[in-house]
Design a protein around this nucleic acid. Sequence first.
DNA 1: AATATAGTGTGTAATTTTTACACTAAGTAA
DNA 2: TTACTTAGTGTAAAAATTACACACTATATT
Lengths: 229, 229
Amino acid sequence: MEQILPHLDSVFSIDCVLFGFDGKELKILLIERNEEPFKDWWALPGNIVGPDESLDQSASRILYELTGLRGIYMEQYYAFGDPYRHPQGRVITLAYYALIRLGGDKELRPISTYAKRANWLPITDLPKLAFDHQKIYDKGLEKIKRRIKHQPIAFELLPEKFTLTQLQHVYELVLGKKLDKRNFRKKIVSFGVLKELDEKQKGVSYRAATLYRFDKRKYAKLFGKEISF
Amino acid sequence: MEQILPHLDSVFSIDCVLFGFDGKELKILLIERNEEPFKDWWALPGNIVGPDESLDQSASRILYELTGLRGIYMEQYYAFGDPYRHPQGRVITLAYYALIRLGGDKELRPISTYAKRANWLPITDLPKLAFDHQKIYDKGLEKIKRRIKHQPIAFELLPEKFTLTQLQHVYELVLGKKLDKRNFRKKIVSFGVLKELDEKQKGVSYRAATLYRFDKRKYAKLFGKEISF
DNA sequence: AATATAGTGTGTAATTTTTACACTAAGTAA
DNA sequence: TTACTTAGTGTAAAAATTACACACTATATT
């Protein structure tokens, strides 16, 4: 974000790219600004780092204020500090991304005053963003594209129990390309970090798929070995 | 660095891990502090970001002040902002690494006042570092380990003309493990980004090896395709 | 001139990984 | 019962990775 500029030489903020997945589309959370500069523009949610907060804490707080969610996987990925990126003065901002399963319930709390509203917008159809937020978003997407190939972050976007098709869908959306079903399943199962459940998908009007769960124990054991997609 | 703390809520600095290769060992540049806190300790070189500098510019300036070098490959990799990482107040620092071919000439200029001296020390035998600089260094090494597998950064550590054995040596030092000579050569040549020169190594008391050059043109063409080591 | 020394440069076979590709099975809805 | 929709599965060819050893060449030494 970056609204109020107290009388300091430089201001240090955090901006977040919150990726959400609702089972269909990949979305990010944007807020519509209620203040100059860039009043009425869409922007990434953000805030100023508090004096006694660590950076990670600060990012979690921003997420919590906006969505009411805690315990979400977030990761710092780049600092943006062009001296003129903010029209009203020097603001250095640190970008975080988070991965969130949508379609829950409790998301989207009351928003702070500098925003009119907040919305999950599909990444395939984003509006123009305030400040250099397009750049921040681009780099964030690039990061998760890279990371999803090596770290088990896809599961953060899915409910605890999920089907292999849903998992593949996440990979396809993030990587931006189709994957072969048989090869995908072969590979993902071969990592040995999925636990097949005795349960089936419910409420679908066709053959129900087997549910799986990401097995953190097994993953922890494999650590050192890296997943490679 | 992070010495003087003006009366601000927070201070924003840059710390650099400068990796240097002299043909034998991988080293980093450390400065011996001349001021409290951590007087007489070794620390990563750093400085406060100036009001009109971009972050990259600031990192380049710090490098230049210390070594007299310009045009060096540097990359931002992580922000460290624990509220208590600096005993005298809040200092958020952004870490950069750089890769430098040593054994040149002009390196190591006069040092600013907060340091007694600066030295290239082999990474296999580092002293205790001031502040959280060990953590910063660790993460930096981790980053280049990862990056050297996908990006052509090894060449930054070598003279313009180099032998395949020298190149392999760099990979081995960064990755911290031995590689098979024949397989290494096969693979690195297969990327097609090396130009074999008509020249041979000089001044060795054994069969002279063929020299190669990194071919930026070819690499640029391949872009999109990624190297994978 | 002969010899010792030290690093250069090269090929192949076995194994593993990746890729491309299509049909049957199961469950639901009409 | 039939139509529909997605689940679930195997194999063969190609490509990439691994493991492995010796002859060559230039110089230095005697």
